[in-house]
Amino acid sequence: MEVRTIKVFTTVDNINLHTQVVDMSMTYGQQFGPTYLDGADVTKIKPHNSHEGKTFYVLPNDDTLRVEAFEYYHTTDPSFLGRYMSALNHTKKWKYPQVNGLTSIKWADNNCYLATALLTLQQIELKFNPPALQDAYYRARAGEAANFCALILAYCNKTVGELGDVRETMSYLFQHANLDSCKRVLNVVCKTCGQQQTTLKGVEAVMYMGTLSYEQFKKGVQIPCTCGKQATKYLVQQESPFVMMSAPPAQYELKHGTFTCASEYTGNYQCGHYKHITSKETLYCIDGALLTKSSEYKGPITDVFYKENSYTTTIK
């Protein structure tokens, strides 16, 4: 009895394709271990004539594949690729409408935090270190965002349907971005203890939790000093293409032309909904596939993004 075979390709990165001759009487799992086709788990399936010449994702289970996976995804987590594939199996079914010149995501599976993050990423200057993220990001900007969303979920250790947080998501993504040249110098002034300067680099240099107003941050924000008295913390120097200011959701007025974009969060910790506000020729609110415009805006804002380049204080 002759062994019926077909020729397929296996890959971990969709760049390096490895030619395989597979036995049609055995499952993919018996031949390769966990195997995925377009995100779908085909591990328990036997090869079919229609699979001839198709590319299958496999887990990096030998040295060659491990090197290829690390170079593309910059992670050695053995569960990463499987999590990416199972997320992709959902995100490829989502709709990605162009809204006001940006790629958004039609609401499904509690994905409003991903839509808000995706919209924000198209408006701030950011370059990702893992080629996987950078490639998928370019495709997302062009309207094909399924891979990018699935990668975000995998890097953030999230599953489809789980509630997510924009600030946490951005923080994970910033860790995989090139923020080497970003720098922030802060000064804390206390009447009792004097003053202390701190220099922050990388992710810490672009994120701040405690106030939404970048102007206020430049002037000074009140913080408790270690001595128990009130101290003032203010920005001395900022070198970065953008800054992200966050605070627990509270009524906040966004003035046209003073910011790049913002995240609105309605609801409580267990259950809520994100919308995205962007400042173009007027203010726009993007909620999944829905767009509304207004000249002014007041609502429960939790993150505001500002364009920056270089700032030095005039406070002496």
Rank of each mutant, 00 (worst) to 15 (best):
H273K: 14
G101Y: 01
M209E: 15
A115Y: 01
Q134H: 05
M26S: 02
I45H: 10
V12M: 15
T75N: 11
I315L: 13
E52W: 12
T91G: 00
T103R: 06
S263V: 15
L81Q: 03
Q216L: 09
I301P: 05
G272L: 02
A146Y: 02
S50E: 13
C227I: 03
V3G: 12
L186C: 09
K218P: 04
I15R: 14
P60N: 09
T5K: 15
N49P: 01
P300T: 14
Y252K: 07
Q122V: 01
A250S: 15
Y252N: 05
T10E: 01
P60V: 08
T232D: 07
T19F: 07
D287Q: 10
I124L: 12
I45A: 11
S79A: 06
Q195F: 13
Q98G: 06
V22Q: 00
H74L: 01
T120C: 13
K95C: 15
Q31F: 15
D287S: 05
S104M: 00
T313A: 14
I315H: 09
E215S: 14
D109M: 03
E71C: 07
T116R: 15
T198V: 07
P78G: 15
Y297E: 05
T226P: 14
H48G: 13
I286S: 07
Y311H: 13
T19I: 13
L81V: 14
T5Q: 12
Y113V: 03
K54L: 13
L283A: 04
Y284A: 06
T313F: 10
L119I: 03
F305Y: 04
A132V: 02
G210W: 05
N14A: 13
D287A: 02
Q196D: 09
S50D: 15
I15T: 08
R4N: 09
V189L: 11
Q270P: 15
A108C: 15
M245R: 05
W94V: 00
D287N: 07
F259C: 00
V188C: 07
A146T: 01
V203Y: 09
T27L: 13
Q222R: 13
V58M: 11
L283S: 08
V99T: 12
K280W: 06
C285W: 06
K92P: 00
T198Y: 14
S240N: 06
N110I: 02
Y36K: 03
V188T: 13
Q31C: 10
E296C: 12
L283C: 08
A231D: 02
T258C: 15
G220Q: 03
T292H: 10
A142H: 14
I286L: 07
Y57F: 08
Y172G: 13
R184H: 04
Q197D: 11
V203S: 12
C112S: 14
S294V: 15
E204R: 10
Y274R: 06
C190E: 04
Y274H: 10
I223R: 06
V21T: 14
K298C: 13
I124E: 03
T278Q: 10
R141E: 08
T266K: 04
I6V: 09
Q195S: 13
K229L: 10
Y138K: 12
Y113C: 06
T266V: 14
T266D: 12
A177Q: 02
P130A: 04
G39T: 06
L173T: 02
K255W: 07
E2Q: 15
Q20I: 11
T55A: 11
T169R: 02
Y306I: 06
T260H: 06
H51E: 10
G272Y: 08
G29L: 04
P248R: 14
A262D: 06
Q230T: 11
T260C: 14
M244C: 12
G39L: 03
A205F: 01
G39S: 11
A177K: 06
G161R: 03
A250D: 07
V304L: 04
G202I: 04
L126Y: 01
K92A: 12
A231Q: 08
L114K: 00
H74M: 09
C227N: 01
Y234H: 06
G164F: 01
G161I: 00
M85E: 02
S171R: 14
V203C: 10
W94L: 00
Y208D: 12
C225L: 02
E308D: 11
T64D: 12
F80A: 01
N100I: 07
Y284S: 08
L126S: 02
Y252C: 11
K280V: 05
S181N: 11
E2I: 08
D180W: 06
T314S: 13
I152P: 00
T120G: 08
G272T: 04
K233F: 05
Y306E: 03
Q216M: 12
C225V: 04
I124S: 05
S279D: 12
W94F: 04
W94D: 01
S104C: 08
T232R: 11
A140R: 01
F259I: 05
I15S: 07
E52S: 13
I105E: 01
S246F: 02
N309I: 11
Q123H: 04
Y36T: 03
S181Y: 09
Q197T: 13
Q270R: 08
Y72S: 11
M85W: 06
Q123V: 03
A142R: 12
Y234V: 12
G194W: 03
T312V: 14
Y84V: 02
N268T: 15
L254C: 05
G164D: 01
M207G: 01
K127Q: 14
H176I: 03
V203I: 13
A117G: 03
S25A: 11
L163R: 09
T226V: 15
L291A: 14
Y73S: 00
Y306Q: 06
T159P: 14
T75V: 15
T11S: 06
T302V: 11
G164E: 00
L200K: 11
T226C: 10
F32T: 15
D41S: 10
S295N: 13
F128N: 02
L290Y: 07
E68S: 08
F148S: 03
E296S: 14
A136K: 01
K229S: 09
L133G: 00
E253T: 15
Q237G: 08
D62A: 06
Y96P: 00
T198C: 09
S240R: 04
R83Q: 07
D165G: 10
K7Y: 11
K233C: 14
V42C: 14
P249G: 12
N49I: 15
E71F: 03
T199H: 08
D38F: 11
G39I: 04
N111H: 02
I105Q: 03
S240G: 10
E215V: 05
Q251N: 15
D62V: 05
Q98L: 15
T120P: 03
T11P: 01
F174S: 05
F305A: 07
K46V: 13
G164A: 07
E296W: 13
A136F: 03
Y84E: 02
G143L: 01
L212E: 07
T64S: 09
L200S: 12
Y274N: 06
R83A: 08
T64A: 13
V8G: 02
L151F: 01
H74F: 03
T312K: 13
S240T: 06
V188S: 14
M244L: 01
M244H: 12
L119E: 11
S79P: 00
I286D: 11
Y155E: 01
A40G: 11
L283H: 12
T211W: 01
K93A: 11
D109L: 00
N147W: 02
C156A: 07
G220L: 03
T260S: 05
L153E: 03
T232S: 08
Y96K: 04
L200M: 08
G228N: 09
T278H: 05
G299K: 03
T314Q: 13
A69Q: 10
Y172H: 13
Y297N: 03
D23P: 07
A69S: 10
R184P: 04
N187E: 11
A289V: 09
R184W: 09
S104E: 00
A205H: 03
K201D: 06
F128Q: 00
C190D: 02
K280T: 09
F9L: 10
L254G: 05
V21G: 09
Q123T: 03
N110M: 03
V206K: 07
Y172P: 00
Y265F: 10
